[in-house]
Simulated scan of single mutants.
Amino acid sequence: MRIAFLASTAPNAQSARGVLVGRYGTVDREEADVIVALGGDGFMLCTLRDTVDLGVPIYGMNRGTVGFLMNSYEEAGLMERLAAAQEEVIHPLRMRAQDQNGGLHEAMAINEVSLLRQGPQAAKLKISVDGRQRMAELVCDGALVATPAGSTAYNFSAHGPILPIGADVLALTAIAAFRPRRWRGALLPSAATVRFDVLDAEKRPVMAEADSVSFRHIDWVEIQSERRVSHKILFDPGHGLEERLISEQFN
């Protein structure tokens, strides 16, 4: 099994890479049968985005903090762990956005696409689903659309629902909704196209983020699941995404 070891810039991740390369060897990512990513969830998301065209599964080992998408770090028995690992396939969100200067932007998000106020005043958003207006005005700090895999991240912190990994739905979650008061969002079919139009954008500027890729002074954003793109993640047996999502709800 040809392994490419990739690591974040964190010293403990770089140190771990040195140890593992010395023990197992390494190849370039383009030649690998599997990629081992050393870092935290943020580095895992970057690795998934950067290697999606290779079609190679990613096995994460946690050298960060939370490590929701990662396996535990151990130096011994890696080949056996890789051989026994279970594969999860997830699909990202595709975001299209236009800024106030007319510039168009596209990005992919594995966890969520979020809109956030970028000034002192609350954002005002109009929400449409599949071309039909569903909310004329949401006054809030922001809103997001999350995948099942990303539902335990920012979505959960914003009091959105945790979605089973096999669920064919997306979570639309409000962030600190002021009007309608305490409106938290909705569950939508994964095939839905969600559009946010920013109201009074000059006075109440809004930024859009696809995971960690951000664009400022946005006029509108369209979000939909991109089923043509698949990310393959490997987990140790009994510690896959489904089990993690269930466990998260009982912590």
Rank of each mutant, 00 (worst) to 15 (best):
L38H: 08
E248P: 00
P205E: 12
L82C: 11
T65C: 02
D141K: 10
V169G: 00
Q133S: 11
N12M: 09
A123M: 02
A158M: 06
L69Y: 12
L125C: 12
E31S: 14
N101E: 15
F250Q: 14
E243H: 14
H231T: 01
W183I: 09
D141T: 09
E137A: 14
F43K: 02
D200F: 01
I127Q: 04
D200Y: 02
V229Y: 01
N71P: 00
A109K: 07
E106V: 07
E87R: 15
R117P: 02
S151A: 07
N155K: 09
A122L: 15
I90W: 04
M79L: 15
R94F: 00
P164C: 03
M70G: 04
L144K: 11
L138A: 12
A109C: 09
H105L: 09
T47E: 09
E137N: 11
Q133A: 12
K203A: 15
I246S: 13
G25D: 10
A210E: 08
I218R: 05
T147M: 04
D211L: 06
K126H: 11
S247F: 10
H91L: 00
D41H: 12
I3R: 04
H105E: 09
M135V: 03
A186V: 15
D28H: 11
R244H: 06
L45D: 12
I3N: 05
S114K: 03
G150E: 03
N71Q: 01
A84T: 07
S214I: 02
F5I: 05
F68T: 07
S151G: 08
G166T: 13
M61N: 03
L245C: 03
V221T: 04
R216P: 00
D236V: 07
Q14V: 14
N251I: 11
C46M: 12
R204I: 05
A85F: 05
L245N: 04
L125G: 13
M108C: 09
V169K: 09
T51F: 01
E74H: 12
V113R: 05
G142M: 08
F156A: 14
D28I: 01
D99C: 06
T65K: 13
A174F: 06
H159I: 08
H105V: 07
D130C: 10
S128D: 14
A37S: 15
A171L: 05
L241C: 05
P237E: 11
W220M: 05
G77N: 02
N12V: 08
M207I: 11
P11W: 07
A85V: 07
N62I: 07
